Amino acid sequence: MNRKTVYLCGFMGCGKSTIGRLLAKRLGTGFTDLDTYIEKKEGLRIPEIFEKYGEDHFRAAETEALEELGAAGGVVATGGGALLSDANAQTAANNGTAIFIDTPFEICYGRIKGDKNRPIAYNSTKEQLLERFEYRRPLYMKNSRAAVDGSGTPLGIVEQIMKNLI
Rank of each mutant, 00 (worst) to 15 (best):
C9M: 12
I19G: 03
R26F: 08
P154W: 10
I157M: 07
T32R: 09
E64G: 01
K116D: 12
A71L: 13
D102Q: 11
T32C: 10
I107T: 15
R26A: 14
E127L: 09
F11A: 00
I112G: 04
M141W: 03
K40C: 07
G13T: 08
R21A: 07
K52Q: 13
E48P: 04
E48F: 02
A93W: 06
K4I: 03
T29E: 05
Y140S: 07
A72I: 08
T153Q: 04
E131A: 14
K52F: 04
M162G: 02
L129F: 00
E51F: 11
R21N: 03
A77N: 08
A61N: 07
G70N: 04
L139I: 15
L155M: 13
G110A: 05
T18H: 01
A98F: 13
A72Y: 03
E62K: 06
D102N: 12
L8A: 05
L27T: 03
G73K: 13
G20T: 06
E62N: 08
Q128I: 09
S124P: 09
E67D: 10
K41R: 12
I101N: 00
D33W: 08
R145H: 12
R26N: 11
A87F: 07
I112Q: 02
G150F: 02
G114F: 06
Y109A: 07
C14H: 00
E106A: 09
L165I: 08
L129H: 00
C108E: 01
G79E: 06
I112K: 03
I166F: 01
D86I: 15
V6C: 05
R118S: 05
E51M: 11
K52E: 09
T97V: 15
Y37F: 15
N2V: 13
Y135D: 06
E62C: 11
L23N: 04
E48Y: 02
I120L: 15
R26G: 02
R21Q: 13
E62L: 11
I120K: 06
S85F: 14
D56W: 08
A65F: 10
G152L: 13
E62T: 11
F100I: 10
L22R: 11
M162D: 02
R45I: 13
K163W: 08
I107C: 06
G28S: 00
K163D: 14
D56K: 15
K25S: 13
S17V: 04
V158T: 00
F31P: 01
E68K: 09
D149K: 10
D115W: 03
T32E: 11
G20F: 06
G15Q: 05
P104G: 04
G30I: 05
F31M: 03
G80P: 11
M12K: 03
D33M: 10
Y135T: 11
F58T: 04
T125L: 03
E62Y: 07
A72R: 14
R111Y: 06
T125C: 01
K40R: 14
G74T: 12
Y37K: 03
I19V: 15
I161G: 04
E51D: 10
